[in-house]
């Protein structure tokens, strides 16, 4: 049973998904124009996982995520300007230009960091969950990871420890079928990541990762369970990466027609159709929403371009806390 969000929250979820989609398309453009350096990993197609989860969180909850994490950051409330500033390595960026695409972090919204090492963010979230448990804050810690990360040791250590300590933690797997360039059936001997929860005596739930409200429903339930002291859950969101692994990957390894099939179940379209069916939205309003998002993205990019780079002395700041 999928919970329907109230109209304002649906509007917010839809707006965030559109903004995220447009922001990521713009990011790819900026990379190809050499306005952004290094590499980037787009989550286009995954937006519902992020907004559905964010809708189930409350102030004080903590999140760690992956280098494919722009959608998480925006869903949690990072501003487009802070993100674009960070993309361009500007002083006004989310991490003062020290992090870049793979390290979007904003402690003020509970985002403890995107991580560029596969799986490393899982144990770190356990620490946030431990703090919530010891200090009895009622908060939870959420960690996002891809299906590929379920094959790395840190996954096993984190789920095991979370379970024996009954930590208020949610493990949210975005199964987008590909670990870098490898289809997951070649690297992973189980059909569903969720079954791995059994090994740690925790619930493993599968959810349609293209449906923001479906994601919200399971995350809310698992979050309530964790807040009540009943321990962690593993949630597998079945989703799809529309783009390649990173900036230069055109994904020639995927099956013909696969992308087209997934495009039929686009997360933005699904929520939009539901809102139209419920008379909460019409095409004109949707077009307006999209136009507003486009303007917000353009504003953020133009603003970021005008921002100064950090002074070179910043290189030596914040290696240690001084004081």
């Amino acid at each position: 049973m999928i919970t329907s969000l109230p109209i304002e929250r649906r509007q917010q979820a839809l707006r965030l998904m559109i903004e995220t989609r447009l922001a990521e398309e713009k990011i790819q453009e900026l990379f190809l124009a050499n306005l952004i350096r290094g590499t980037t990993h787009l989550a286009i197609g995954h937006e519902a996982v992020a907004v559905g989860t964010a809708a189930a969180l409350i102030t004080g909850d903590k999140v760690t995520c992956t280098y494919r994490g722009h959608h998480h950051a925006l869903a949690l409330g990072m501003s487009l300007r802070a993100m674009m500033g960070e993309m361009m390595g500007k002083e006004a960026g989310a991490c003062k230009g020290k992090g870049g695409s793979m390290h979007m972090t904003d402690a003020s919204i509970g985002l403890l960091g995107a991580n560029a090492i596969v799986g490393a963010q899982l144990p770190i979230a356990m620490g946030a969950a431990l703090t919530a448990q010891v200090k009895k804050t009622g908060g939870i810690a959420v960690t996002f990871f891809g299906e590929g990360a379920s094959n790395i040791g840190a996954f096993h250590e984190a789920l095991n420890m979370a379970s024996v300590w009954k930590l208020p933690a949610l493990f949210i797997c975005e199964n987008n079928l590909y670990g870098e360039y490898s289809v997951w059936s070649k690297t992973t001997p189980v059909q569903d990541i969720a079954v791995r929860g059994t090994s740690y005596a925790m619930p493993g739930v599968i959810v349609d990762g293209q449906d923001a409200e479906a994601v919200y429903t399971v995350v809310k339930a698992a979050g309530d369970r964790a807040r009540a002291g009943e321990g962690p859950s593993l949630i597998e969101c079945k989703t799809y990466r529309y783009r390649g692994h990173s900036r230069t990957d055109t994904a020639p390894y995927r099956k013909q027609g696969e992308l087209d099939e997934w495009l039929k179940r686009d997360p933005i379209d699904i929520l939009k159709a539901r809102m139209i069916a419920d008379s909460q939205l019409d095409e004109v309003e949707f077009a307006e929403m999209r136009q507003a998002a486009e303007m917000a993205v353009v504003d953020a990019v133009e603003w970021a371009k005008q921002q100064p780079y950090p002074p070179v002395e910043a290189l030596y700041a914040d290696v240690y806390y001084e004081g």
Binding site: A107, P123, M126, G127, A129, L130, T131, A141, A154, E157
Partner: peptide
């Protein structure tokens, strides 16, 4: 016996108030 989890958990706890 989970050294990665021990250090990662300690880090996560340290940045959230412990």
């Amino acid at each position: 016996i989970s050294e990665q989890a021990i250090i990662g958990t300690a880090l996560g706890a340290a940045i959230t108030g412990l």
